[in-house]
Write a protein that binds this DNA or RNA. Structure first.
Ligand code: DTP
Ligand code: DTP
Ligand code: MG
Ligand code: MG
Ligand code: MG
Ligand code: MG
Lengths: 364, 364
DNA sequence: GGCCATAGG
DNA sequence: TACTCCTATGGCC
DNA sequence: CGGCAGACC
DNA sequence: TACTGGTCTGCCG
């Protein structure tokens, strides 16, 4: 038997690299099982060692923050809290609920494109786009087993095998996805000719004028938008979030994924109760490192919890960072038009081409 | 069932890219079966298309040669034959049988190194060094199923699976092989301190002085050499060819591979009868393209057959090429010392670093 | 201005 | 057997 | 001299 | 799913 047994020993509960954070289509998965398998297959690799090294640096940073946190006196904290509250009041006071933003995000984009061109991938086929080294995305059928973007394919394969199903791989084909992205954009243009393309499968549309002109709600516009995308692409579904800011719309677009929509009413109360229970990781810009820092320094997991720690937040982080986080906690970010780009200015700021090569030698 | 069936249809008999030419350890393999499987797994790939394109260019060259061949008159041919015969007489006359050369070549080198360090690879384990993309070399156990250097690993895997065995992969580890190469060289130095390192697993030793000094035959020296290599490396076997030229020694080193030796006596008759039946491909410098050209233009498969076509050989090829081939057919090449390198001249002439990237677009 | 970490698709 | 590649931002020295 | 094909490990 | 990477040589324009 060549198969390696996955031990029953639990993975250390601390790793933030084990592909277990929330993601569309992954609510019903057995997270402990996935964590265990991923850990077992990763723990001896050079890649894992490198991750640990980086995590260690973050841990040091966290410890430094904790110490500073300890040493803050009650008076100092009080003054930070007042500063935070003044800032919150100011931000809240300038809240702009006038615009109706949509965030459109295609569902399992690369995978859906492939399925559209290959009937054998239709239905509930468990497949991933990529290879055994790396996966770009996975069908929703595959996500049930924990398969997801940026996961090594051979681990994904094992996750499926342990569940008794086999994972099919489809190689990536960028030009194909760009064609479909172009089709989807023809639909976007019907609603907002100035839409902001955030990535090849994602865009922000300002639906204010469209809704006013057609005298319809954001929800109705979202439904029409999804319909038009389906038509224009001849079969691709997307999910749409509607809110008064691009930040909220983005979070909302994930709520009823796939092939769904969610509206955050343009009212202060609704916004606050929408954002409050959100895990901090849902906030765009808060990734796996910042999430750890906020949890391990301040004990905050959700937006509401971080809001309660606003004094320490202001004390420990730079003004710029604190302000950005506080804005997000109020559901504010990206209400106005995006910064205009000057005439003739190229929209892209850089190009790069990189390739991973084998390790070069001992790192010292 | 996800397994793809290999069709029973035969591969076109003409492809020279299907890993079926003679190689140590591969005499008992079912060549037709291998050819069929390799062909079935390759024929739809971009790589195969590219090979076909290149083969097509060679075909054109062959056709051009054939035409020229046709148009050579009897008189002209006669004169070429005389020229060839004069050259052969001259080459034969200057034949140098004075030196005793050895070619030492490690057996399944990378694989043997790995097996030495990992007991689970000892014995008759079917394994390859490399990955599913590309194999560097294979254990002799794996060669029984057609697995060999430069074969894509996933095809090798299939070859083994069809035979009901599973192929194990071991990643390459150059530093490891260089260490063992150094150990082997300590043994080489005992026999010829000026040995020529032809590659990391292969060297030419001038045993003339060693044999004279110890009053032993080349065969006996070869046996001692193999023993010393085994000792110095603590377990690696090699094969040795002994002859009056490096070219013959190299061919001879392959005759009783693995863990064997072969002596070509330093006598004109013995040399001629050794080289005569050799497939042309065995001659160093005659690769898959030249082999095809010689077969398809002149109908020559072996050295003796090409010698019979010496007139056409001289007519169709440049003087330099004809001379080189005629030398080889007489078993001549590399009798004298290698060209001296000047003081302080670096032995290596270049360094390079390359990486294969994905296809860039339509080639026109 | 270059380097590194972080983030997201 | 195998842990991507592209674009962007901000902090730091 | 640069580009390309062939060869070998 | 997947077809290498390093070194050298000779020919051709
Ligand atoms: N880490 C990554 N590496 C390479 N490509 C990626 C990565 N993440 C995403 N992609 C590609 C493949 C995705 O189909 C496409 C869009 O990303 P994204 O919208 O996040 O997921 P998705 O569209 O596949 O699923 P969904 O949006 O339904 O959750 O970008
Ligand atoms: N095409 C190749 N690509 C990469 N590495 C190779 C290739 N061919 C050979 N090698 C490496 C692996 C081999 O172990 C080593 C020596 O080559 P070689 O002597 O031809 O075969 P070998 O030593 O593996 O078996 P043999 O017993 O036939 O000599 O060089
Ligand atoms: Mg998407
Ligand atoms: Mg997206
Ligand atoms: Mg060898
Ligand atoms: Mg060799």
């Amino acid at each position: 038997m060549a198969t390696v047994r996955i031990s029953a020993a639990a993975a250390p509960s601390s790793f933030s690299t084990l592909f277990t954070h929330e993601k569309a289509g992954m609510s019903n998965v057995d997270k402990e099982k996935i964590k265990r398998i991923v850990y077992e297959m990763s723990k001896d690799s050079a890649h894992f060692k490198e991750q640990e090294r980086r995590d260690q640096r973050v841990t040091e940073h966290i410890n430094a923050c904790r110490e500073r946190h300890q040493r803050i006196g009650a008076d100092e904290l009080k003054s930070h809290e007042q500063r935070a509250d003044r800032l919150l009041v100011e931000l809240d006071g300038h809240r702009n609920l006038e615009r109706t933003w949509a965030c459109v995000d295609m569902d399992a984009f690369f995978a859906a494109c492939e399925a559209l061109e290959d009937p054998s991938l239709r239905g509930d086929v468990v497949f991933a786009v990529g290879g055994t080294s790396m996966i770009s995305t996975a069908s929703y059928a595959a996500r049930r087993y924990g398969v997801r973007s940026a996961m090594p394919g051979f681990i994904a394969q094992r996750l499926c095998r342990e569940a008794g199903v086999s994972l099919r791989f489809v190689p990536v084909d960028f030009p194909k996805y760009l064609k479909f992205a172009e089709l989807a954009r023809t639909a976007f243009r019907l609603f907002d000719p100035h839409f902001i393309a955030a990535s090849c499968d994602e865009a922000f549309l300002d639906l204010t004028d469209y809704c006013a002109h057609h005298a319809i709600s954001g929800a109705e516009a979202a439904t029409r938008l999804r319909h038009q995308v389906l038509e224009a692409t001849r079969g691709l579904t997307c999910s749409v979030g509607i809110a008064s800011s691009r930040m909220l719309a983005k979070i909302a677009s994930d709520v009823n994924k796939p092939n769904g929509q969610y509206v955050v009413p343009a009212e202060r109360e609704a916004i606050v109760s929408f954002i409050g229970p959100m895990p901090l990781r849902k906030i765009p810009g808060i990734g796996r490192v910042t999430e750890r820092v906020l949890r391990e320094v301040l004990g905050a997991e959700t937006c509401a919890e971080l809001l309660a720690k606003r004094a320490a937040l202001c004390a420990l982080f730079t003004a710029r960072v604190a302000r950005e986080h506080l804005s997000a906690l109020l559901g504010i970010g990206g209400e106005g038009p995006p910064p205009l780009q000057r005439e003739g200015e190229p929209s892209q700021k850089g190009v790069s081409q990189e390739r991973t090569f084998e390790p070069t030698g001992a790192p010292l």
